[in-house]
Design a binder for these strands. Structure first.
Lengths: 351, 351
DNA sequence: TTGTACGCGTTATCAG
DNA sequence: CTGATAACGCGTACAA
């Protein structure tokens, strides 16, 4: 059996209280007894019982991070940054993959709540569904009642939830990107977005639309497809665009992975990027730089977002402003995947 | 204050034991009282206290995963797969980033031990240091004493530690890769490996060396550099090779990210890949396929490894064989970054 | 089927 | 500075 405080105390010839004091260093202990206790601790290979401590102290040293999927670099980078801050504060970061399922999101929030996590960070876009939002708001309330912080990173917290939000300028970034494409001369677009009813999807699509309308163009919804932000869905969408004979000179994707998939599909169909068709992404993941051709995209300060979210979660930073909102700006990154309008998709794709 | 079993029991007019039984469903409870308890549970928004339960039941529902860095796709994919299995078993996966530091590895093992984690999965290569190995072995022993499973994924467990190991055929894969380069006609190589004294680094370098020796070539250690498996270190190494005037026709990198960095550096120096110099990676991360040019590499079954490690960790699979070793095979992936020998690095790089 | 009562390993309060 | 001892919230023999 694992040794407990009682065992250590017996061996050192002191009370459990004294051992606890040595362990936590929050009360004075004479050097002599301290040495004896430390020796006993070492000899028995004593390891603190986390659950017992959490029960007695009514607080745990866990930090929950809810993501879509850690293997998606977008979330991997966020997770890594948050985990870094957590580790610095001697906290354990629990990563929960929801695979985009709103039910799993709720399930994991409950699981973290029951573990008495110090804080929960919800990353990425959220589902646009009043019912779901209400249930999330309810859970946030419970978190706060128990003294757990809740931080949103990539989407806005429900109104009057008192939770902090780190926000990306998705709409502005998307607007700038499409403006860039328009400036290059493009007029016929296809848009491959993320999952439906997702806040990130919506914001980016809105930015794209903003730019189109400002240029006096009518957004053609016929050339808009939904994916799930994965490379595979981008590939499928690329093939679908070809199949449908969509005649565009530029494909705007909801994120980089989708753009990568689209480019792979076009390549396979004999369409050259950017000579025949331009392709743009969003996020500026590391892979965007190494892709063929390098991806024109919008850079999001993911590492900074993660650091701020992490620091907010561990309580190192104070709640910002009265509205609890932190806006992070985006930056247009011009590379090689976008060029002047080419011959277009319909006339170059060989089915 | 958060409601406890006592509150629920009072409200439902039953004892705490009954509430506990309803919660766990491990003892018969009459439908009537069950309904009353469920109602009370709901009305009070009761949430189980995880630590208290863990203390009473002497077991927690946490699964620890130790990785170098989740934002590295290699580890992101492993983490995601393990987390998937954990989630399916209603367990929480705790991801710990060590950033390659052996001290952090030990620190996190202790932290997980103290949380009474059900199992710990150590991923990636390990440090080749008898002293460190001994301390790890010591911690593994403590884990086993407390009934926690330990699974290695990507490196071999210390001898007689009774821990299970999922292993990649790093050496065989590296051998096959270099054999391929030799078959293409290359004779002058540069090698950019991972961190020193790392089991993965060593195994891959050994495979490369095997192939060279088998072909009657003398490994030129002058053209071997160490990185840390990151893209940045690959970029630095690529620049350094140029600076040193290393005259090779092929650069073999210890992993894909390093290869990507090398390619970026060569590109920047005016060296074409693969026309002038060939570059090869290892791992076959998703990015290898989208890179420019697409990377010739060695595919490792990361998702499979993660699934097996996860299942072993949660106890869904039995300990394999008498030696506790599971070998996973690798596969040579030929793409565009390797071609016939070109003019070589020294004669094409413009400093 | 249900209730009582004790133990799980710590922390914290209160004496000494 | 140190030692008893009472929580902390839950699971579970044991008894009814």
């Amino acid at each position: 059996m694992a040794p407990t405080l009682v065992d250590v105390a017996a061996r050192a010839g002191v009370s459990t209280a004294t051992v606890s004091r040595v362990l936590n260093g929050n009360y004075p202990v004479s050097p002599g007894t301290k040495a004896r206790v430390l020796a006993a601790l070492h000899e028995l290979d004593y390891v603190v019982n986390g659950p017992a401590r959490a029960l007695a102290a009514a607080s745990s040293d866990m930090l929950g991070v809810i993501v879509n999927d850690v293997s998606d670099p977008f979330f991997g980078i966020l997770s890594s940054g948050i985990q870094w801050e957590a580790g610095g504060a001697e906290l354990l970061a629990v990563i929960c993959n929801t695979a985009g399922s709103p039910e799993d999101e709720l399930k994991y929030m409950q699981l973290l709540l029951r573990q008495r996590a110090r804080a929960i960070v919800l990353t990425g876009g959220g589902r646009e569904d009043p019912d779901h939002a209400e249930r999330v708001a309810q859970l946030i309330r419970q978190c706060h009642e128990r003294g757990a912080r809740v931080v949103f990173c990539g989407r806005q917290a429900p109104p009057d939830s008192e939770a902090v939000s780190i926000l990306f300028d998705n709409r502005g970034g998307a607007r700038a990107l499409t403006r860039h494409l328009l400036a290059m001369g493009h007029r016929r677009f296809a848009y491959v977005s993320g999952p439906e009813a997702n806040t990130t999807t919506t914001a980016r699509a809105a930015g794209h639309r903003d730019a189109l309308l400002a240029a006096g163009l009518e957004p053609e919804d016929g050339a808009a497809l939904h994916g799930d932000f994965s490379r595979a869905s981008g590939f499928a969408a690329g093939m679908e665009l070809v199949r449908r004979g969509v005649d565009c000179t530029a494909v705007v994707a909801g994120n980089d992975l989708t753009a990568l998939g689209v480019m792979a599909a076009l390549r396979e169909q004999g369409v050259r990027v950017p000579e025949d068709v331009s392709v743009a992404g969003f996020d500026d993941l590391p892979v965007a730089m190494d892709a063929a051709p390098a991806l024109s995209t919008v850079r999001l300060p993911l590492r900074e977002a993660a650091a701020r979210a992490g620091r907010l979660a561990i309580g190192a930073d104070d709640m910002p402003g009265p509205d609890g909102l932190v806006w992070l700006s985006s930056e247009l990154i011009v590379r090689e995947s976008v060029g002047p309008p080419g011959r277009g998709l319909a006339s170059t794709a060989r089915l």
